[in-house]
Amino acid sequence: MDLKPGSRWASQVCDTEIVVVRAASAGVSLECGGQAMVPVGGDRAPGATPDPAFAAGSPIGKRFADPASGLEILVTKAGAGSLAIGGVAIPLKEAKPLPSSD
């Protein structure tokens, strides 16, 4: 999967959608609810539900960053599945908001 910055991906097993903020240094497989994510608007597996091991949920507006590959993603639509790369959960990235300046 080509996780270009700005590309948008959807879960196959819940409502989660994400946008890629920072690309990974190498090819990785991005999953949600235990299933590979697909491009927003693309075909998804019918009737699938999140794997209970990856069902902690993806909250809207939160960032997740993979320290190993450098991949950083932002949740743009909340869903029941949680995000992982190759079966390993991606940690939440706490960002300190900057004061609005424009």
């Binding site: 910055p5 700005g6 903020v21 809207i60 507006g61 932002l74 743009t76 960002a95 908001p97 900057l98 609005s100 300046s101």
Partner: peptide
């Protein structure tokens, strides 16, 4: 370019903040 402006937005603004 789009990448300049969106980089500024993504790095400085919290989505739905």
């Amino acid at each position: 370019r789009h990448r300049h402006l969106t980089s500024y937005v993504l790095e400085t603004v919290e989505f739905l903040g």
